[in-house]
Design a protein around this nucleic acid. Structure first.
Lengths: 186, 186
DNA sequence: TGTCTAATTAGATAGTTGTCGAATTAATGG
DNA sequence: CCATTAATTCGACAACTATCTAATTAGACA
């Protein structure tokens, strides 16, 4: 979603169009004249802005009036300020394996866990996903481990315990580190 | 430079990189491994993010640590909320004055300075251009001034001095701020 | 000095996106 | 229905961007 938003605004013509629309509603013809592009081109840009939820369409007769969607703009710009939100972007990889597709059902838009299923079969890919958020070859304090987990789910105790039980994380003298995937249980 | 900001974020790889960097500082190698791209590619993306002021570079030995620039992010996302700002986008026209055309010869495609001419007559429009990259109504630390200059030219000392000599920038107690254009010398 | 490592820059290529003219759809009114 | 007007969709081409490998730069160290 966020990517679509940025793509929509990452072109001078579209920024200009949005600027005009922000001032008041405009028809396609008007916009084409104002930005010196042909109507099909403008139509194409407007479709992208609309797809991103930035403008809305009101039809009267056969002229189309495009107006600004304030809500989208304020919602998205606000979400940029939330640090967690931003970090969640890192996990935006296209899902491939069936595990990944399964996982998708348990993740929110912003890369947090919605729930933790009861069956072991479903829990394993989730733990793998979580374990991969730890870097290999460094140690973590317990506080850091908790922090890393809590960025994805509030129940740090359960997940810390499970990660260790599945040999994804190891602990010694209060220090933690990630174990190689080859040895993971599950 | 709102367009630059959006362009920088309008690509999945760069969003991912920014997400990783938001969590903590990373080196180019780390990032390349994490997003599964080659180092030159990552380097290229980082340059764009840096150009947009979204990340900063801290060099230690010969590894480069990239970190998040919270300020830029919050400043720009806030400016999206300001309606006026948005409407102003409509007026983004290509430059045409004779100064602007002169300036064009000294700028690279990506908006950096190729050279700094010897004659005062030619130097003035360049300094004006540079000074406009500072915001009015806020103060900058010396580090921030350097960073802003270096985004356009490596010789921060010369330009900092010249900006002050032409009364475009003022300094007091180690803080800098932009002066109104009406008072600029040249 | 020479070597090693990390990063950047250059150059090539493949993929994506912006723009246009032509053809098509949709609404309105004789 | 047919003509008119506004908008969208289609197909082609040009411009731009992402990515790679190879070459270069810069720091550390011995």
């Amino acid at each position: 979603m966020l990517l679509q938003f940025f793509k929509a605004l990452a072109h001078e013509s579209r920024l200009r169009l949005l600027g005009l629309i922000a001032a008041r509603e405009h028809s396609v013809q008007e916009l084409a004249a104002l930005v010196a592009l042909k109507e099909p081109t403008v139509s194409h840009h407007l479709a992208m802005l609309r797809e991103a939820g930035l403008v809305s369409l009101r039809q009267d007769g056969n002229t189309h009036w495009y107006g600004l969607e304030h809500k989208t703009l304020s919602r998205l710009s606000r979400s940029l300020l939330a640090r967690d939100q931003l970090e969640a972007l890192a996990g935006t990889k296209p899902p491939r394996s069936s595990d990944d597709r399964m996982l998708q059902n348990y993740l929110t838009e912003d890369g947090r866990l919605k729930a933790f299923p009861a069956t072991l079969k479903k829990r394993r890919p989730i733990l793998r996903w979580l374990a991969r958020h730890f870097e290999e070859g460094r140690t973590y304090s317990e506080a850091e481990v908790n922090e890393t987990i809590e960025r994805r789910h509030h129940d740090r105790e359960t997940f810390r315990r499970e990660l260790i039980a599945h040999k994804m994380l190891a602990r010694k003298d209060g220090s933690y580190w990630r174990l190689p995937e080859s040895g993971w249980v599950g």
